[in-house]
Design a protein around this nucleic acid. Structure first.
Length: 399
DNA sequence: CTTAGGG
DNA sequence: CCCTAAG
């Protein structure tokens, strides 16, 4: 929380962020603030940005640079706009952006409150204080909240991932972003203009939700499964002919990928009731694992080790009401299998409609090499398990 | 309660 | 994903 005293505070004596932005030309920008003066980020860009005139993708990239150009490690005390330091101005700006973005949300504070920043902190190991700050920033800030590029995963995560990498990219994408976005959707559901601000995939989901809502008059739980059907693309679903087809042939029609993390109880009730007593009581609800979730899982395993499923769940999947430790373990098992299958037949991986991202594949193999698994060709020696236990189990080798 | 394994 | 045995 070190303020930057060198910044010319003369021009920043204004209360509102709009003034700051609009008059940014008058300021002698310090090197930290050069962002605002760059041609690609001039006032018009910022203005349209504030006025929701920017496309979501453009916004995303802008916010990316935005958050990278500034050091927002101060975010936790964004409330103090009275002291005109650079951090405060930036904080106000961020807040203003969020406010404009959620102009139909009644309470912006609610977003923050419901976001449960503490859970985000749990994603970070205690010894890494800086990362905690970064994560809180990305999580609580508008960048982490409203960025819709959920399909994207950071390519730089592969291999020897730095801690800062996963804390900044993986965790917010996989976890908290979903919560906040769901919350945001909640607030916007009552408004008809919600589709204007969402990408096409989300629009499809909303459309399906609405059409479904016409038939069944469930309050706000039944359609929620459909709500985010097209929102996130998981590499994990099986090949399908049409975009919605995969839901039709699932016989229980309740296997909609759903990253809404709230009110899971009522949702479960409905899904259970729908598929009750028919057949295949198992697999009542399948929730596709998103790429972000898988990356979070890999990160968690790399930090806690294979077998520490509860730790991984509590620290990396805190906000995910689903994803029990068993689910996480099962997913890891499937990942291992998939990784080895991909190793044998690289072509099958490519021909698959859901090719596992190479980054994840590499990381899975990396971890698999550390932790022997029954799917490994070389390391699994079941027949000799009674004799030499050292070869069968070689627990975590993390430092 | 957590984990491992099979279904 | 679910279920269950074993620690």
């Amino acid at each position: 929380m070190d303020r930057t005293p060198g910044f010319p505070a003369s021009g920043f004596k204004c209360d509102t962020v709009d003034e700051n932005v609009c008059h940014s030309n008058e300021y002698k920008m310090s090197d930290m603030k050069r962002f605002l003066m760059e041609p690609t980020h001039d006032n018009t860009a910022v203005d349209s940005f504030l006025g929701l005139g920017m496309e979501t993708m453009g916004l995303s990239s802008t916010m990316d640079e935005f958050s990278h150009a500034f050091d927002f490690s101060f975010l936790p005390d964004y409330g103090g706009l009275d002291s005109c330091t650079t951090q405060d101005v930036e904080a106000g700006l961020k807040f203003q952006i969020l406010d404009g973005f959620l102009d139909e949300v009644e309470e912006v504070e609610d977003i923050y409150a419901s976001h449960d920043l503490s859970s985000t902190s749990n994603h970070i190991l205690p010894e890494t204080e800086d990362m905690k700050k970064v994560s809180e920033l990305e999580d609580g800030g508008p960048y982490g909240n409203i960025s819709f590029h959920s399909e994207s995963y950071s390519p730089g995560i592969s291999g020897s991932t730095g801690l800062s990498e996963w804390s900044k990219e993986t965790v917010p994408h996989a976890e908290s972003q979903n919560v906040s976005r769901e919350k945001l959707k909640d607030s916007l559901d009552s408004n008809e203009s919600e589709d204007d601000k969402k990408p096409l995939s989300t629009f499809i989901g909303s459309w399906a939700k609405r059409s479904r809502n016409r038939k069944k008059n469930f309050p706000n739980t039944a359609y929620r499964r459909l709500d985010s059907s097209g929102e996130r693309m998981s590499y994990d679903f099986r090949p399908r002919k049409g975009p919605i087809k995969k839901y039709m042939h699932t016989s229980t029609e309740n296997t909609f990928p759903d990253d809404q993390l709230t009110s899971s109880e009522s949702e479960d009730d409905i899904s259970v009731r729908k598929t009750s007593r028919t057949r295949s009581d198992r697999r009542k609800h399948q929730r596709m694992w998103t790429v972000d979730e898988v990356m979070t899982l890999v990160d968690g395993i790399s930090h806690f080790g294979v077998g520490k499923w509860t730790d991984i769940k509590n620290n990396f999947f805190q906000s995910a009401t689903h994803r029990t430790p068993v689910d996480i373990r099962d997913k890891w098992r499937n990942l291992l299998k998939a990784s080895y299958n991909a190793g044998e037949a690289e072509e099958r991986r490519k021909s698959s409609s859901r090719p596992m991202p190479k980054d994840i594949l590499h990381r899975v193999r990396e971890l698999a090499s550390r932790h022997p698994s029954p799917f490994s060709r070389s390391s699994c020696l079941v027949y000799d398990s009674s004799r030499s236990q050292s070869t069968s189990k070689k627990k975590k080798k993390r430092s």
